[in-house]
Amino acid sequence: MSIVCLGIEGTAHSFGAGLVSSKGEVLSNVWDMFSPEEGGIHPREASRHHSDLGPKIIGEAIEKAGVTFENVDLIAFSRGPGLGPCLRTTATVARTLALKLSIPLIGVNHCVAHIEIGCLESRFEDPVTVYVSGGNTQVIAYAGRRFRTFGETLDIAIGNMLDTFGREAGMRFPAGPRIEIEAKQGRNYHTLPYSVKGMDLSYSGMLTAAKRLHSEGIPLNDVCFSVQETAFGMLAEISERAIAHTKKKELLLTGGVARNNRLTEILRGVAKRHDAKFHRVTPSLAGDQGAMIAWTGILQYQVGDVIEVAESQVLPKWRTDDQDILWRGE
C-alpha cells in the first residue's frame, strides 16, 4: 500500500509544498520564490513571504495532486540548515498540519533532500553530488552511514557570489541566469583569482576582482564570461578531486545553480574523464522545493526516523554530515 507525504520546504528565499508517494511518484510540486524589486534576501522579509503565501501554496499542491488532506499520511519539513526566521515559519506550518491531521512529523535535512531527490530522478545509487545554490557550495558523498562533505566553500557560496556580482552590475535577484546570458556573448578572458585549497575553494577573492573589472569599464559580457569560467573551473577541480579520491562512478549536479548550461558541460567533461555517469537534476527538482522534502520524509519514515512536535525545534546550522542516514546501507 502506497503512502503519501506532504513535504514543506522553506529554508531561504523559496517556499514550496510537494506531494510524493512511497513509489517515488511526484504527485505535485508547487513553489514560489521571494524576489525583491531590488537588493538581496532579508531573512525577515522572506519569512513574511512564506507565512503570507504558505497556506495557498500548500492548498494548490493538494489540489494539483488530486487528493485531499485526508489522503496525506505524513508531514515532512525542512528542519535546517537555513535562515532562522524562514525555518521557524515553515516549521510552524508543518507542526500545525501534523497535529491537526494527527499524522507523523518528519524533520528533513535540506541538503540531504537535494541528494535524495536527485538519486530518485537519476536512479543513481551512490553518487558524488555537487550541490550548488545561493547558500551552498558542497561536494558530498556517502561514506560510513553519513553524507560527508568532501569539499565546500571556505567563504561564500557560488550563487551568493553570482548574485552579489549581479547586484553590482544592476541585475535583479537571482542574477545567475542573466550572467549566463551575458557570458555567452563574452569573448575575452580576464584573469581572476583562482583559489582551490585541497578539496575546498574560495570565491570572495574573485568576487572582489570581478567587481573591480566591472568598475574599470571592462565590458559586462567579458566579465561574466571570466567569472563563469573561473568559478566553474574551480568547482570542476574539487569535484574531480572528490571523484578521484572516493572512486565513485556517478556524478550528480543539483541545486539552483545546476540550471547553468556551461557548468553542466564542464562537469560532464569531468565525469567522462573518470568514466563516471553524469546527471543534472531537472530544474523543477534541483531548486528548493517541497517534493525533495516529501521524498526524503518517506525514506526516513520507512526506517522510523520521525520526531515529536515538542522536539522539532529548527536547526539553522544543521550540517549535512550530522545526520545518521539510516535508510542507506554500509
Binding site: 558523498a141 561514506a143 560510513g144 553519513r146 560527508r148 562533505t149 568532501f150 571556505l154 582551490v196 585549497k197 585541497g198 578539496m199 575546498d200 579520491h245 554530515d321
Partner: peptide, 27 residues
C-alpha cells in the same frame, strides 16, 4: 598546491584540510 609566505590564515586552512581528510576518510 603548496605555497610559501604562509599567513596564520593559510596555515589554519591547511590544518582544516587535514582535519577534513580525517573526517571524510577515517571517520
Amino acid at each position: 598546491l603548496a605555497e610559501m609566505n604562509a599567513t596564520t590564515e593559510m596555515k589554519g586552512v591547511d590544518l582544516h584540510l587535514m582535519k577534513r581528510a580525517f573526517e571524510t576518510t577515517h571517520w
